[in-house]
């Protein structure tokens, strides 16, 4: 092996290494910034890393693409749910506002994509609270005057 081929191999190796580092780094740099567009109700939480809501609830979110810690307001973001029977997401306007809805109890991921980049955000849909009816059975026969009119009814 001569000096030239060693040099080439080293160059190739370092190029691949730089490429791999860049690939990993670029993927990690690309994420989304989520801001809520509707008042958070009980059981709802929204961060850049996760969303949480209750069955039957919905929340409006604005999603910005982020690259190298800079928001890219003009980048159009798309969104899909990994399991639409648990979480649905629909675009609300052209300015990256989406409505996330809790369809059924469970977990799913929403994938936001922009400029060939993809970011997965886990969504937890919590069950509605346990409930038992509390109303007591109405006792008929208490209407005023009922007893006094027994003979005429």
């Amino acid at each position: 092996m001569n000096a030239r081929s060693v040099g080439l191999r080293q160059k190739l190796g370092s190029t691949v290494l730089v490429g791999l580092i860049c690939l990993v780094a670029c993927q990690r740099e690309s994420h989304v910034q989520i801001t809520t567009r509707t008042t958070l109700r009980g059981e709802q939480a929204a961060t850049n890393q996760a969303l949480e809501l209750q069955v039957g609830q919905a929340m409006g979110i604005h999603v910005d693409a982020v690259k190298k810690r800079a928001i890219k307001p003009k980048w159009k973001v798309s969104a899909t749910s990994s399991n639409t029977s648990v979480v649905s997401i629909g675009r609300a306007d052209d300015k990256n506002v989406f409505v996330v809805a809790g369809v059924a109890e469970g977990t799913a991921e929403i994938e936001f994509s922009f400029r060939n980049r993809r970011v997965q955000i886990p969504v937890t849909v919590l069950p509605r609270e346990d409930w038992e009816p509390t109303a007591e059975e109405f006792a008929f026969g208490g209407a005023g005057g009922w007893g006094g009119y027994g003979g005429s009814l």
């Binding site: 009980g42 039957g56 629909g90 109303a135």
Partner: peptide
């Protein structure tokens, strides 16, 4: 059951124009 339930105005199958919350409470009388 008692809940805050959301109802979505959907267009073109997957776009959401807006949504509203309806509160359900138990009738006791």
């Amino acid at each position: 059951q008692p809940a805050e339930a959301s109802f979505l105005a959907v267009k073109n199958f997957d776009e959401v124009e807006d949504f509203v919350v309806v509160v359900a409470k138990e009738a006791v009388v």
